[in-house]
Write a protein that binds this DNA or RNA. Sequence first.
DNA 1: TGTACATCAGTGAACGCGCGTTCACTGATGTAC
DNA 2: TGTACATCAGTGAACGCGCGTTCACTGATGTAC
Lengths: 213, 213
Amino acid sequence: MAQSDTVNRILDAAEVLFAERGFSETSLRMITSKANVNLAAVNYHFGSKNALIQAVFSRFLSPFAKNLEAELKRVSERHTDKPIDIETLLGIVTSCIVMVPAQSKTGVSVFMRLLGLAYTQSQGHLRKYLEQEYSRAFKMFMKHMREATPQLTSVDRFWRIQFMLGTTAFTMSSIEALSDIIENEMQVHSSTEEVVKRLVPFLAAGLQAPLQN
Amino acid sequence: MAQSDTVNRILDAAEVLFAERGFSETSLRMITSKANVNLAAVNYHFGSKNALIQAVFSRFLSPFAKNLEAELKRVSERHTDKPIDIETLLGIVTSCIVMVPAQSKTGVSVFMRLLGLAYTQSQGHLRKYLEQEYSRAFKMFMKHMREATPQLTSVDRFWRIQFMLGTTAFTMSSIEALSDIIENEMQVHSSTEEVVKRLVPFLAAGLQAPLQN
DNA sequence: TGTACATCAGTGAACGCGCGTTCACTGATGTAC
DNA sequence: TGTACATCAGTGAACGCGCGTTCACTGATGTAC
């Protein structure tokens, strides 16, 4: 058994349980029994429950941020004359998200649900951690976003990006339940890819909606 | 002291604390000490913490649902020839939300934040309760929604309504944190009312976005 | 009008329980001489 | 090569604490006769 096996088993179990139940509704005892490790192992390896939460996020956000920075740099080098358009920008983000799970072993929906929870459930420690850890990738994305939507004031742009984030996080976190409902009611099967395809025009249209005064 | 005074003081305190901290992060001891009532009074009047949570929602959702049904009926009687358009429909919903706080004493932002939490934090008991309690208003709204977007297939309409719901719930549940960020970065204050005003055109544009194949 | 009883809002203290965390300890592996 | 020691992952049991809930009780008010 490799040295890091216990650590990874804890992270795998915590990731799934946090996504299913939220942070304060998931106890260390649930995590350690699902992971088949000793209760004290969490505090031994991570120090505290809060530190475990941060580690869960790091494991998928770090590769995502790395992918995103690389991809943004790559594409912008081919767009020296004109800014990257919104559809391309959104495409880059979604493709970078899809690239990650192969590394961290979990599905896209768990990934997205956690992102949603990070916004709605954090008590401060997590938000602070994410802000300082991933500010570079976020700023890079925002720079391109600014160039792609010159017609928006910075306040409008800020809010519309939050709206996009909200739509995505919420939809992805409940995609399983929603797919079941629609399959029951309308006998139509929806894969995550198909939902994302429906999502992108919705987001792009919202982002570029006329401003009202 | 009127008979219902303790009940209302508990509801007032619970409403504010739930909105600030979420449900499982708010203890009955916090609520009763803020309300200046005995700890046992919650279980005496409501029976359990879950029942208190449901009562908090009832106090603002019941008048809202009543407003919404009345307003939808009123407006549709003047639109016998053509269906109500989307902007009007969304306007009705937001105005019905704004009408409520005068009855339940709290601000719109507390109201909206609770709505967001209902989606992101409920453990089942709340979702079931809301579904069966307010299904009539919801179905009525959906009927008008269907008429307002005849160009959409029912599958597309289903997903786009979920997108709208997601955007709203997510934004409202994290509105405080987001308002703080934008106030720090751009020195602009954003009230909930202003955010809702920004949200509506975003949602309307997304809902009516061209379909892609 | 007075008495006995019922009802009900509210109380103070305690209950058992699950929580995150701590601590002394084990046993395997690596390292120095 | 053998011995002494250090390091470190992992363990079992317990810690104190805050939680939702319960219960016997009080005291005020209403009601029947």
